[in-house]
């Protein structure tokens, strides 16, 4: 007993070091570190409101660029409106329920990083606005990422610039699909892997979301092909994709709520079960 006490006294510094270090590392590498704990919510809300003050000030300096983006999007939406009206006429009756499969919630980015290996965004929308983990996030320019954690008033997003993000994308021209990941470094360039050899990739090809992902509507731009090479082992293309979204200047985003997502995932799971 006395020996143990002596040991504790003698090495108390080292033991305390191990304890704090262990705690820190566990916190760092747990998958969902503070999920749903009220302490996390309170702390997150507090740090987010500090950031909000800062972002509000900063936004004034970027109003011109924001306006330009929004105006561009308006014109694009107006064009789509005409197209979707035609669509409604054709499909009325038969598929009326499935006409609206997504709703969009506007949000502002109040904190963002892009220089780390794994980056996050914080949005000023939370649980009480209907945001849930796993929803897609897009901006007027293209795909941003996926909602990660949600507190009452705020939500964090795993953007494309995160180690764990893997989005399915397809080539707009040839419809071949692949996965978009980010390997760190330049925040403007992502990598698209597993694109079939048959896709005759060209420089400048548009990469966009495809229907395999239940998170996003199809056809939202992800980026443009900057260069490409053929992976000799897997015989598939590896593409350098210049991202449409500049994460260094990101302000307005939309959180995508996919109305049919649950139904679709259930159906696909069921189909898989039946095969087995």
């Amino acid at each position: 007993m006395r020996n143990i006490a002596r040991f504790l006294v003698r090495y108390h510094l080292f033991l305390l070091f191990l304890l704090t270090q262990g705690w820190a590392l566990t916190a760092a590498f747990r998958d969902h570190p503070y999920h749903r704990s009220w302490a996390w919510n309170v702390a997150q809300d507090a740090s987010s409101s500090v950031q909000k003050v800062y972002t509000n000030a900063e936004n004034y300096t970027r109003l011109r660029a924001i306006n330009r983006d929004l105006a561009k999007e308006n014109s694009r939406l107006r064009a789509q409106l005409r197209a979707s009206k035609l669509d409604t006429v054709v499909t009325r009756g038969a598929r009326r329920d499935s006409l609206q499969s997504y709703t969009f919630l506007g949000a502002e980015v109040i904190n963002a990083s892009f220089h780390k290996r794994s980056n996050y965004l914080t949005l000023n929308r939370g649980f009480k606005d209907g945001v849930r983990p796993g929803q897609g996030v897009i901006s007027p320019r293209g795909v941003v990422g996926v909602v990660h954690e949600v507190s009452k008033n705020y939500a964090t997003v795993l953007p494309i610039l995160h180690r764990r993000t893997r989005l399915s994308g397809s080539m707009a021209r040839t419809k071949h699909f692949g996965s978009v990941i980010w390997e760190g470094g330049n925040h403007r360039i992502a990598t698209m892997v597993d694109v079939a050899r048959q896709a005759r990739v060209k420089k400048g090809d548009l990469v966009q979301t495809d229907t395999r992902s239940a998170l996003f509507p199809s056809g939202i731009p992800i980026g443009k092909v900057r260069s490409f090479s053929l992976d000799p082992t897997s015989q598939s293309y590896v593409l350098d994709v210049e991202l449409s979204v500049d994460f260094a200047a990101l302000q307005t985003v939309y959180i995508v709520n996919s109305l049919a997502k649950k139904e679709r995932i259930e159906l696909e799971a069921q189909a898989e079960l039946e095969v087995q």
Partner: peptide, 18 residues
């Protein structure tokens, strides 16, 4: 940990500080 909260980095800063 304060820095980690702001940067969403779990405990990376706490670990480096300790």
């Amino acid at each position: 940990m304060t820095l980690d909260l702001f940067e969403n980095s779990g405990g990376l800063h706490a670990s480096a500080c300790v």
